[in-house]
């Protein structure tokens, strides 16, 4: 290799590696370290013990929050999938008008560009006791008193997070469906398969990489959200991220907060590698 070529190699490889080491690996290393330390007034002191992790798996308060967060994220992912899949399927297989197709796709993705905070805030104003939903239900006579059932609970969080993250489910599923060659479903129907059989045996299996990618995104992003619990969650709507936030704020227990962050990091890594494996298997299986 000549001099300048290796210089450019050093640059394009060196800059990102340096960045990853300084701004990702080093910080992760620091919170891993802190997660073994102990809280000591006024801050914390070095130690090596598993007390923080032990607290997380034994103290019902934390176990409950962890389980609740997993449940909410799973519900958001499933609901997004159920809403996104028919849309993506329609877009790829039933929408033959090219410009309608472009517009419809853009329309679903566009909300991603609109402030995430605002999209959560809107639901606070819709679901509240004085909100649109209550006014609407009262004007139609379905209910006579404004109901407080809609806001400040897990239902509100699931609706809000689904609303926010649905584009992340549509995009990968659309891409996966788009890649399925048209002649496959034609062949399937020529062989006498009913449309639903074609869907179950051809389309659905071939779109698993998209489903896996969408599931990963919506699950992980809901899992780490603290805006929805803050705005629409209510008293028993704490999610992990809100607990982490308070450990680094008012509760002032950085070691415990670090341990929780590590738990979150590990769960996200596990989901990402699981989804990678599903995608890899689907891709090799397709040939």
């Amino acid at each position: 290799m000549s001099g300048p070529r290796s210089l450019s190699t050093v640059l394009i490889l060196g800059i990102p590696i340096l960045w990853v080491v300084v701004f990702m690996l080093l910080p992760y290393g620091i919170i891993v370290t802190y997660s073994f330390w102990v809280k000591a007034y006024p801050t914390f002191k070095p130690a090596f013990q598993f007390g923080n992790y032990l607290t997380l798996v034994t103290d019902p308060q934390y176990v409950q929050v962890l389980l609740r967060t997993l449940k909410i994220s799973a519900l958001v992912s499933v609901l997004s999938l159920l809403l996104a899949y028919p849309f993506a399927w329609w877009l790829v297989f039933r929408c033959h008008n090219q410009s309608l197709k472009t517009w419809a796709y853009m329309a679903v993705i566009a909300p991603l560009w609109v402030s995430y905070l605002l999209r959560a805030y809107i639901w606070k104003t819709i679901l509240g006791t004085e909100g649109i939903l209550n006014s609407f239900l009262m004007s139609t006579g379905i209910i006579s008193e404004p109901s407080s059932l809609f806001l400040y609970n897990q239902f509100a969080m699931v609706v809000t997070l689904t609303y926010i993250f649905i584009p992340f489910m549509v995009m990968p599923i659309y891409t996966a469906l788009e890649r399925i060659p048209a002649n496959l479903s034609e062949a399937s129907s020529d062989l006498g398969m009913a449309p639903w059989q074609t869907f179950l045996k051809v389309t659905l299996p071939l779109s698993t990489p998209g489903i896996a990618a969408g599931f990963t995104l919506t699950f992980c992003l809901s899992f780490g959200d603290f805006i929805a619990p803050f705005l629409v969650g209510g008293p028993d709507g704490n999610l992990i991220a809100s607990v982490i936030q308070s450990q680094f704020g008012s509760a002032l227990n950085w070691p415990l907060g670090s341990a929780l962050s590590i738990v979150m990091l590990v769960i996200v890594l596990a989901i990402v590698s699981l989804s990678d494996r599903i995608e890899a298997r689907a891709n090799t299986g397709a040939h």
């Binding site: 990702m24 910080p27 992760y28 620091i30 919170i31 992980c220 992003l221 899992f223 780490g224 959200d225 603290f226 991220a241 982490i244 936030q245 680094f248 907060g257 670090s258 962050s261 979150m264 990091l265 996200v268």
Partner: peptide, 8 residues
């Protein structure tokens, strides 16, 4: 989630 990036 951004919170992990932020805290670390």
């Amino acid at each position: 989630p951004g919170i992990v990036t932020g805290i670390s």
